[in-house]
Structure formats: structure tokens, C-alpha cells
Design a binder for these strands. Structure first.
Lengths: 147, 147
DNA sequence: CTAAACCCTCGACCATGGTCAAGAGTCAAG
DNA sequence: CTTGACTCTTGACCATGGTCGAGGGTTTAG
């Protein structure tokens, strides 16, 4: 059904930063921020100085949003975007980045599971009433705060 | 056993902020920062204006460190500390905070496991070479914006 | 006494990921 | 032409958890 998107009334030739922001679901300031941070290439400008975007930027912004949802930092996303313009060599590296990120995620899950076990032990041991001296949570956190 | 700790050579009567920092394993600036942020009560001062701490503050700092390791924010720790001075009512609330924190930790673990699955799928599907157009990682991030 | 080591306050700065305000220019509709 | 909505740049500000420097005063050892 998408026979000709170039003259699509939904995607006019010149779209301003506001239109981009609405389409991508981000704030205008966020777009300018990403440009400053080299996550978006500087767009061409109209005579007035207004930024004049092609529709590709909306894709790029969605890329950024999804990567962010997967826990990539903007720094990592910047690297992914750089790689993705490097044909052929890019794919290998992108996969490696994703694998590295996976390792980090797994590491973080293990850490949190350790924290979870620690909290659980304390909660199970805590009667929920009585003197503070008998609260295992405070005792565990404070050490021997008997004094 | 604890007959007289006040003249213990290990814990002199007046300990300066530097001594506290060494004993608790934190920086001097951190102690002053915690004081500003109401995590530590303002100590009394010597005539010179120097902070003059009792040994309790070291316990309190260790409490803070352990709670931080369990993933509590300073805000949450501040609340725990406030509660822990509220005898009897404190224990109940402390247990509740710990339970709430446990819930957050479990939630975060679930989120990360979802992220992990997402990354894994992409990595498994990626050949690691070839044209960028065929890289499922970039495709997934960039999305099908068919609409 | 002197010098080193310590302490004081105040305020600036780091990264992260934006958000907002001021003051000025631009664009589209009526 | 005017009005209102939009955009421009610059620079400040938010929270988080500190860290560091400047420019003083204090304490302690020799």
C-alpha cells in the first residue's frame, strides 16, 4: 500500500522540528539536545534558520527511544548509530555491542538477585513489632548498634 | 563486657571528622555532605569550630553504606534513619520499607529479564555479517514504521 | 617557633538526560 | 497588518551522590 510516500500528505517535504517531535513522540528540546550530543546529524536549515528535517530523522529518533528502552545509554546509542553507518563492518560490531549489553544486563540481574536474597532474609527474620534492638533489619544495616 | 568504652584507647573522646572518615571508610566531604542532607545530625563543635564526633556516627555511616549497597537511595535511607529513632512504631515501618524495596527490586529484575530476552532474540537472529539491512538488531531498533 | 597536617565554609564542578526561560526572529491565517 | 503559534540561540536549572579548590584558621610534633 505504500506506493509513493514522497508526496504523502502525511509527510510533507519540509518538516519543522515541532512536527518531528510530534511524530517521534519526543520533546523539541530533546531533539536539539540530541543534535548537540551528536546523536542526530545537524539538519539543513531554511533561509530563516529553521531546522528542516527529512522524514528519516523520525526513524532515527525511534531507534534511539527503543535502544534507550533496552537500557542502552546515550553514549552507547551514539556508538551504535555510528556503527550503523559503517556498512559491512557495522553489523559485526553492532552484534558485539548487543552481546556486551546482554552481559551487563545479566550481571545486573545477578546483583539484584543477591540484594533480593539479602532483603528477604531480613524481612523474614523481622517480627514487625517490638523493640528496635530486636529488628534484624536495623541490626544488619547498623551492625551492633546496641550502644 | 561493655564496662567502660569511654576511655578506650581505640575510641578517644574527641574524634575529628578525619578520624570518622577513616573508621567508616568514607571521604570527609561525604560526611559533610550527609550532614547537609540530614543523614547525620550536626555534631557538637569544639571551641575552634571543628566537628567533634562520638563513636556512634561511625555506626551510622556503616548503616548508610550497607543500605546503599542494598540499593536504597539516600532519600530512603534518610527515612529509615528517621524511623529508627522512633521506638516501637519504627520496627513496623522499617519492615514495610524493606518489603517495599524488595518489591521494587523484584520489579526491576523482571524488567531486566524482559530486556535480556529481547536482546537475546536479536543476537541469536543476527548473522554477525552481511549488509546492515539484514541486521535484525538495527532493524528491530529502527522499527517497521509501516504506518 | 615553625611547619605539616588537619579543619572550616562557600561555592563550583562531574556525569546523565534532559527541561525551561528570555529575548528575538519567522510564518501562516484572517 | 496584526496576531498567535512557531522557531532560533544562549544559558540556567532539575535530581543524584558526591568531589574539589580557594582562602582562611587550628592543632600537633619537633
Amino acid at each position: 500500500m505504500r506506493m509513493d510516500t514522497s508526496v504523502n500528505p502525511q509527510t510533507p517535504r519540509h518538516i519543522t522540528i515541532g512536527a518531528v517531535a510530534r511524530r517521534a513522540g519526543v520533546g523539541i528540546d530533546t531533539i536539539r539536545y540530541y543534535e548537540r550530543e551528536n546523536l542526530l546529524p545537524p539538519p539543513r536549515r531554511r533561509a530563516s534558520g529553521y531546522r528542516d528535517y527529512g522524514p528519516d530523522v523520525v526513524e532515527r529518533l525511534r531507534f534511539i527511544r527503543r535502544a534507550k528502552d533496552l537500557g542502552f545509554t546515550l553514549q552507547e546509542i551514539r556508538e551504535l548509530l555510528t556503527l550503523s553507518t559503517d556498512r559491512e563492518r557495522g553489523v559485526k560490531s553492532v552484534k558485539q555491542r548487543a552481546e556486551a549489553r546482554l552481559g551487563e544486563v545479566e550481571q545486573r540481574i545477578r546483583e539484584l538477585q543477591r540484594v533480593k536474597r539479602g532483603l528477604k532474609q531480613l524481612i523474614d527474620a523481622c517480627p514487625g513489632h517490638g523493640a528496635l534492638e530486636h529488628c534484624p533489619i536495623l541490626r544488619a544495616l547498623g551492625g551492633e548498634e546496641g550502644a
